[in-house]
């Protein structure tokens, strides 16, 4: 029982000098990107007195003569192959609607999931009627973006054993810009928990699965056995570390999360979110990351 009350302090970001110097292509609204008229106006820009100006805060991208600004604070703009974590919001005819932090709900077609009983199973009318047994409203899934519709909505698929319904664990919702694109977004961290870093900013933390029985059910089996206290502590610590890193805008990938976890070990789990502890932990993490880069 403790209530920690304090006066608010001015926010300061823990930035190491290296990252501040590397800001050439970052703009804020109103910044003039170029006064050269030979460029084409792309997303996130407008022309003000013949000067190409940024209308959002973000990173300038040039493709030949086209200049765009990719906003940093944004909803998820999916691309084919992205790993996402999403929540089922609706069960419809032959499809599920999935909330993935994009502008429009994504769809997961019944034909693009692996149903229990082998890959080559035909989908019958009966499957359509029992869709809610596989995934119901509120369930969390991991999936991959199969295609992007013309309006920007995403079509997902779970046709691999690594995707499917998520069981017990903790969801952390962060900004999609903070997730680093990598070869794999599924990690079994050595500290004793697993993590799915969805490209859409949804991060799923769960105890590392031990048995193989889950895969046999085609990803629809969820264990409701109690998770051990030690696993829980690791997951909670990782959760708070993720929030700390996100608060200080550190790019998230397996190494940064792991270093943050290691740096936080001297503090109690519930104390990590206190501003001064958060600052210290993130600082340590950034030093470790710099050292590792060499």
């Amino acid at each position: 029982m403790a209530a920690d009350m304090r006066l608010p302090t001015l926010r300061k970001t823990v930035a190491l000098s290296e990252s501040t110097s590397d800001r050439k292509n970052l703009v804020v609204p109103g910044d003039v990107i170029t006064s050269d008229t030979g460029f084409m106006r792309g997303h996130g820009t407008y022309v003000d007195e013949d000067k190409l100006t940024a209308s959002v805060a973000g990173e300038v991208q040039r493709v030949d003569k086209l200049i765009c600004v990719r906003p940093l604070k944004t909803r998820f703009n999916g691309e084919v192959g992205d790993v996402v974590v999403g929540r089922i919001t609706e069960v419809q005819q032959r499809r599920w609607k999935v909330e993935t932090n994009s502008r429009l709900d994504s769809v997961l077609l019944l034909s693009s999931v692996n149903l229990p009983g082998g890959e080559l199973r035909r989908r019958s009318a009966e499957d359509e009627l029992t869709m809610r047994e596989y995934l119901q409203e509120g369930d969390l899934i991991s999936a991959e973006v199969q295609s992007v519709f013309s309006d920007g909505a995403l079509s997902l698929h779970t046709r691999s054993l690594k995707y499917g319904k998520l069981g017990q664990g903790v969801l952390v919702q962060l900004s999609p810009s903070l997730i680093k694109r990598q070869k794999t977004h599924f990690h079994n961290l050595p500290c004793g928990a697993s993590i799915i870093l969805g490209n859409n900013g949804f991060v799923w933390l769960y105890p590392t699965p031990g048995g193989l029985d889950e895969e046999e059910a085609g990803g629809f089996y969820t264990s409701l056995e109690p998770v051990s206290v030690s696993d829980r502590e690791v997951i909670s610590r990782l959760r708070n570390c993720l929030l700390a890193l996100a608060a200080h805008k550190v790019l998230l990938y397996d190494t940064s999360v792991l270093y943050c976890y290691e740096s936080s070990l001297q503090h109690q789990v519930k104390n990590i979110l206190k501003p001064e502890v958060m600052e210290e932990v993130v600082m340590l993490t950034q030093h470790k990351l710099l050292e590792q880069e060499g």
């Binding site: 069981g167 903790v170 829980r232 909670s236 959760r239």
Partner: peptide, 29 residues
């Protein structure tokens, strides 16, 4: 989701909530 509920429920039974707090702890204010 149901599984998340089970996780939260068991956590509270063990006096360790998802953010590391005990049952009678406040978040910082």
């Amino acid at each position: 989701s149901e599984a998340e509920k089970v996780y939260i429920l068991h956590g509270i039974r063990d006096d360790l909530r998802a953010d590391g707090r005990g049952c009678e702890d406040y978040r910082h204010m």
